[in-house]
Nucleic acid binder design. Structure first.
Lengths: 124, 124
DNA sequence: TACGAATATTCGCAACGACGAATATAGATC
DNA sequence: GATCTATATTCGTCGTTGCGAATATTCGTA
């Protein structure tokens, strides 16, 4: 994995928030929409950008696409994600994202359930 | 200092090499030219980019402009520079840069001499 | 097999970045 | 003050990026 490409992925606020959330575990697109409060198209475009460069992986569960960090990220990515966590630990916006994430995760147990079924909390 | 701006500075190969060199100490433009082997205009443009965002500081010594990292960089910058060093430790190109740097530094003692005089090694 | 829900892709556009070429500036020296 | 040296800035161009709007795809379900 190219270090420059990693930094290119990190230098957009939306992608930064996405990656930051993914360090806590896998998420589907509708969760990103909810937490980040941005239009679906925008989320998908950034996820596509990240996927093309190998920073995230995706699996389909019925209609839902579950995004996650690679199982064994290369050293450079791991180091930078760790650094990102340190740098955002006291940031208001990133903390707010985590708070929203916690609410969603407690609302439905599908993530803990190893993604065996479609996330019930996505069903409107 | 904005985290996004830091990443924007890091996502170009030339700037990455410049910052990497600066973690070893101050340098003047002609040294960057020598080590990186890129045209003067390009070096100046990237240094200007970095200066505008506060990642480097500059002082003039006669005709020479001495660039350095800020004396007390903010947490985010410090963390990322540390991460950069980790990520590049085994990289061929970055190691070659350091090798060239060592040669230049041993060739003239002006950096150790606290920049009291114009760097003799710059004088052609 | 038609439809709805979740998500992806394409398109057009404005902004930005990288680069080389040309030009400008600032200080030292004669 | 003319000139030289080190460095900075400007300009034109080209590729990339971010975004919203529109459209397409994929899967489950009736």
């Amino acid at each position: 994995m190219d270090l420059i490409e990693i930094y290119q992925c990190l230098c957009d606020a939306t992608r930064l928030r996405i990656l930051h959330l993914l360090t806590r575990g896998p998420l589907c697109v509708c969760h990103f929409q909810d937490i980040l409060n941005v239009p679906q198209t925008k989320v998908s475009q950034h996820l596509s950008y990240l996927r093309k460069r190998g920073l995230v992986e995706v699996t389909r569960h019925a209609n839902w696409m579950i995004y996650r960090l690679p199982a064994h990220p290369p050293r450079e990515l791991e180091a930078n994600l760790k650094c990102l966590q340190d740098c955002t630990a006291e940031d208001k916006r990133f903390r707010a994202d985590l708070k929203k994430l916690a609410k969603i995760q407690s609302g439905c147990g599908w993530i803990a359930a190893a993604l065996k079924d479609a996330p019930a909390c996505c069903q409107s």
